[in-house]
Design a binder for these strands. Structure first.
Length: 489
RNA sequence: GCCCCCAUCGUCUAGUGGCCCAGGACACCGGCCUUUCAAGCCGGCAACAGCGAUUCGAAUUCGCUUGGGGGCGCCA
């Protein structure tokens, strides 16, 4: 299927892939896939000083992990390349020079120090900070003098002093700005790299981007971009400004709100399909009830009209719930396969590796329903693997019992279990349930005591299933140890 | 300070003039199930920011106020 829709995700490798950025990528991807268009990834690496090592890889990994495949960009190539802005400097220079020769831009020789002072003064006088156009109308002579001083100029856009610039945002409707509030922003930095504004406009045009879906923080720079498109003689794309994702305190999501990088979520045991589903519902919804949607369903039903205008707070609690839903939906072998890396990494070092595959397969059904994240799996399953249990012996004494009755219960259980020819769930229940009555105990009392003896905890998977998986030998050993602990109490 | 955007339960949201004394989900609180935990099921709590205007009728339209967010870099 061909379509005129071409969208892009244009991350800057200056940090790790923030969930807000990834949500933007997701919406672009959904929009492209829904329309049968192209999804382009372009790397905006024009800030040499802020470049972070490994960030590019992390961004690409994050996209791949979520299944957001791109048609053009790094690793994929494409006929509009290169897709790294650092490899397109000539193109930006040419555009900047053209604007200068047309009279739409000019060279500025102001030092960073002068600019800082100017700004401080403006703030002090409660004026809107912005370039004072000091170099806008330099004479040829003045320019020559500056050049003679050896100052490398920047190129600034000559913003119109009056009039308005407006556009029709696909999500917000008509938006209008006074040109007088737009200052002469920089197009080309003195290091020869373009600023975002220039590079973004030039590339979106050259790459034939039809729709720009980006976060709302870009809304106020859109008139600058529009002005640039006009000066360059380019047809602007359609714009859609997506609602922001905020932290729990309603401020822009940042490190202090906890995990913000998509890679953090992977490490914390979130499933990519759950993450995708959750992120899609942050600022978009299908109807008044659907919560769980597969990627295919998301693609089929995605539309700009259903994107909300309101900023959304990232609700980690709900993500946890949704991840649990996805974990429970997994087939056993799938769940096991995905849990293995976590088990391998987080089970105590004393546990022998590699983990016995058959045994792991029997343990997993017992933890699947209880895990909200894969990270919790080793913790939930730990007692199945360790040799020695550590717990507070007093826990062995169930309510309305004392040390001796608990020890006696364990002792009798031991005798009965020893005789058991088949150690499966049914046989265990057949022996232990009547035993409780025989001992004059409530089922809950006996089972509680045994649960602690066998698992070391008061909350665990169902007792008989747990014991069956642990096996007769291990169970008897643990019950004996428990009995001895009680006697020493 | 200036400019722009936004405004429904604590949170994510449904709602585009009457179907809404506002629906769903997370969280929370009860109950059921039950050997604990989890899951599941049933029930409950909880919102149209305020004020004016338009209209027979407004969460839905308009205006003002208030509140929140974003932007104002040789960052993106």
């Amino acid at each position: 299927m061909t379509s005129s829709v071409r969208v892009r995700y244009a991350p800057s490798p200056t940090g790790y892939p923030h969930v807000g950025n990834i949500r933007t990528a997701l919406f672009n991807w959904l929009f492209a896939r829904h329309a049968g268009g192209s999804f382009v990834v372009r790397i905006e690496d024009t800030d040499v000083t802020r470049k972070v090592k490994g960030a590019l890889e992390a961004i690409l990994d994050g996209l791949k992990w979520l299944g957001l495949d791109w048609d053009e960009g790094p690793e994929a190539g494409g006929k509009y390349g290169p897709y790294f802005q650092s490899q397109r400097l000539d193109i930006y220079h040419e555009a900047a020079e053209r604007l200068v020769s047309q009279g739409d831009a000019y060279h500025c020789y102001c030092s960073p120090e002068r600019l800082a002072e100017m700004r401080a003064e403006q703030v002090r006088r409660k004026q809107p900070p912005g370039y004072d156009r000091h170099c806008r109308d330099l004479s040829l002579k003045e320019r020559a003098a500056k050049e003679a001083e050896g100052i490398t100029p920047v190129v600034r856009f000559k913003a119109p002093l009056e009039g308005q610039t407006g556009f029709d945002d696909l999500i917000r409707g008509g938006v209008v700005f006074e040109n007088a509030t737009i200052d002469d922003f920089i197009l080309l930095k003195s290091d020869g790299y373009p600023t975002y504004h220039l590079a973004n406009v030039v590339d979106d045009h050259l790459m034939e981007i039809s729709h720009v879906l980006r976060a709302e923080e870009w809304l106020s720079s859109t008139p600058r971009h529009l002005l640039l498109y006009r000066a360059l003689g380019f047809e602007p794309p359609r714009f859609a400004h997506l609602p922001m994702i905020l932290g729990s305190d309603r401020s822009k999501l940042s490190k202090r709100h906890g995990a913000v990088s998509i890679t953090d979520y992977r490490e914390q045991g979130y499933l990519p399909e759950a993450m995708l589903n959750f992120l899609a519902l942050l600022g978009w919804s299908l109807d008044d009830k659907t919560e769980i949607l597969s990627p295919e369903e998301l693609i089929a039903s995605f539309s700009l009209e259903r994107i909300s205008k309101t900023a959304a707070i990232f609700n980690a609690e709900k993500l946890g719930w949704m991840n649990g839903v996805y974990i429970r939906r997994l087939g056993l072998s799938d769940f096991t396969r995905r849990s293995l890396p976590f088990l391998d990494r987080d089970l105590p070092p004393g546990v022998e590796r590699p983990l016995p595959a058959g045994y792991v397969e029997r343990v997993m059904p017992l933890v699947q329903e209880r895990a909200r994240t894969l990270l919790e799996v080793p913790e939930l399953a730990q007692f199945f693997f360790v040799d020695e249990l550590t717990y507070e012996p007093a826990l062995l004494i169930a309510r309305k019992m004392d040390r001796d009755s608990a020890a006696a219960a364990l002792e009798t259980s031991l005798e009965r279990l020893l005789e058991l020819p088949v150690f499966d769930e049914e046989s265990l229940e057949a022996v232990l349930r009547p035993l409780a009555e025989e001992l004059g105990l409530k089922a809950g009392q006996l089972f509680g005591t045994l649960r602690v003896a066998v698992t070391g905890r008061t909350a665990a998977p169902p007792l008989f299933q747990t014991m069956a998986v642990l096996g007769k030998e291990q169970c008897l050993k643990r019950i004996k140890a428990a009995r001895d602990r009680l006697r020493r109490l």
